[in-house]
Design a protein around this nucleic acid. Structure first.
Ligand code: MN
Ligand code: MN
Ligand code: ZN
Ligand code: ZN
Lengths: 138, 138
DNA sequence: CTGTTAAATGCAATCTACTTGCATGTAAGG
DNA sequence: CCTTACATGCAAGTAGATTGCATTTAACAG
């Protein structure tokens, strides 16, 4: 458990519970974004029994605190990955097998400025995912 | 009803039904991507009664034929917009009021090539949406 | 260490988006 | 018209996610 995370939680008036430690541990040992069900399965496997609803509530909370990132691929559900210690980046998913890769890049800094000028929105985030066919499924 | 659309349907072995004409009409009179429920509400308002399940089935079919585009913002549901006659583009949504704007641009052509080389995937699509705060919600 | 309390959890019920099965209706072509 | 494959409506079912509430627990003051 990173000290920085404990600090963020405290700053948000949140407690550092058994369930939260375990959820963060599951997320940290997964490089790629995983579903709520996969987080829950990870908890069960680690013999840390946490109700599924607690997983939902904590992922939502961790996302609000900015400790966890939600990624949507068009699967009808979100996936989650830890933010701490990892650079902002994007993903690609295979339409055949669903495999996901990290893409450690982001081309959107300049464009964001342009969009802010053109729309008068203040832009505070974006979602960029690629889709295609991996070598095995091609 | 565009002739090009009728042609695409026929090419896919699909019939040009009352429901389909009405669904496409609703989509065409909306510039911005709308939810399934909004499509259905549009049909009711136009006094064209079509079951919600028929809307789901047709949107899925129209998407497979490439006539309709699904856009996901992180709302727990998809939105749909017609493709025909509109250039490839992206969107921005306000985190406060949910307002959506079209962004008639795409910065990803070159990057797609790079990703194909680096990952050995063949890339056939991407999702790019921006989030932020509109002038009213700021 | 102990008592207090606000936050967190588990369980059951509920909600919402979406899908499936099947009997009936209808567009399209001959 | 007649035929038939495709499309639709209705009802039921599924899966992901949320809510209400009684109980437990982390955090902290004393
Ligand atoms: Mn990632
Ligand atoms: Mn659009
Ligand atoms: Zn980015
Ligand atoms: Zn694009």
């Amino acid at each position: 458990m990173e000290a920085a995370i404990a600090k963020s939680l405290k700053a948000g008036g949140k407690k550092l519970t058994r369930a939260r430690k375990a959820i963060l541990a599951v997320l940290e040992r997964n490089t790629l974004p995983i579903t709520v069900a996969e987080v829950h399965a990870g908890l069960v496997k680690a013999k840390t029994d946490v109700d599924l609803v607690t997983v939902y509530r904590n992922l939502a909370m961790l996302q609000e605190l900015g400790l966890v990132n939600a990624v949507g691929f068009q699967e009808g559900q979100m996936r989650y990955e830890v933010v701490h210690g990892r650079a902002h980046h994007h993903h690609i998913q295979c339409r055949g097998c669903g495999k996901i890769l990290d893409l450690m890049l982001c081309p959107l800094k300049k464009l964001t400025k342009l969009i802010e000028e053109q729309t008068r929105f203040s832009v505070d985030g974006h979602a960029l995912e690629f889709f295609g066919w991996c070598p095995q499924c091609r």
